[in-house]
């Protein structure tokens, strides 16, 4: 069973270039990095950490498609409905085609964009475990300012393992090393 709390040992670096070198060293030593935290998106970090490509674009595509279908089906249903269903006030266009696809394109486009944007954003916040009022533990206040952090989980790790990690931080130029329970 996973521990309720994570014991985290983390080191703070001053610069992204030092961070990148440290990650390479960690990989070479087969250290199991829990996470890396940075104040801004550092390019080149994803392949180094072996992060998979995000699949958010697929989410965007699916929601976009849903928007397209909602618009086309909705408009067709409403137009058809006003003809077929008893009691609906018929929408009459003098001499123009009743079901006119070109006229539906603007709204179809807008709903495609709307669904895609909202869907992707909501999924982004959900999969990142974020939302208004969510209070995810912050390892160090300077991570969102100017420090670059490598964190290791040390639950069930013996003293020699922790010492090895501290040695790693020392060797790779970490400015500060802290422990925290999150």
């Amino acid at each position: 069973m996973a521990a309720k709390y994570k014991d985290v040992l983390f080191g703070l670096y001053n610069d992204e270039t030092i961070l990148m070198k440290a990650i390479k060293t960690a990989k070479a030593k087969h250290l199991d990095i829990m996470d890396v935290y940075t104040p801004f998106p550092v390019h080149g970090l994803d392949p180094l950490l072996g992060l998979e490509e995000s699949r958010l674009h697929i989410v965007g595509f699916i929601f976009g498609l849903l928007g397209t279908l909602t618009a086309l089906c909705g408009i067709s249903f409403i137009f058809g409905g006003s003809l077929l269903f008893e009691g609906d006030w018929p929408t009459i266009f003098g001499g123009k085609p009743y079901w006119s696809l070109p006229a539906f394109i603007p709204i179809t486009f807008e709903l495609t964009v709307l669904f895609c944007g909202i869907g992707m954003t909501v999924v982004f916040y959900l999969i990142c475990g974020m939302g208004f009022g969510v209070d995810n533990p912050v390892l160090h206040d300077r991570i969102t300012d100017d420090k670059f952090c490598i964190a290791f989980q040390t639950n069930d790790m013996d003293d020699s393992g922790v010492d090895e990690l501290k040695g790693f931080f020392n060797e790779t130029g970490a400015e500060e090393v802290h422990t925290k329970q999150i």
Binding site: D35, G133, N136, T144
Partner: peptide, 10 residues
């Protein structure tokens, strides 16, 4: 919204 600056989140 609970932003922490995780690499994956970025």
């Amino acid at each position: 919204m609970g932003w922490t600056g995780k690499a994956k989140h970025w």
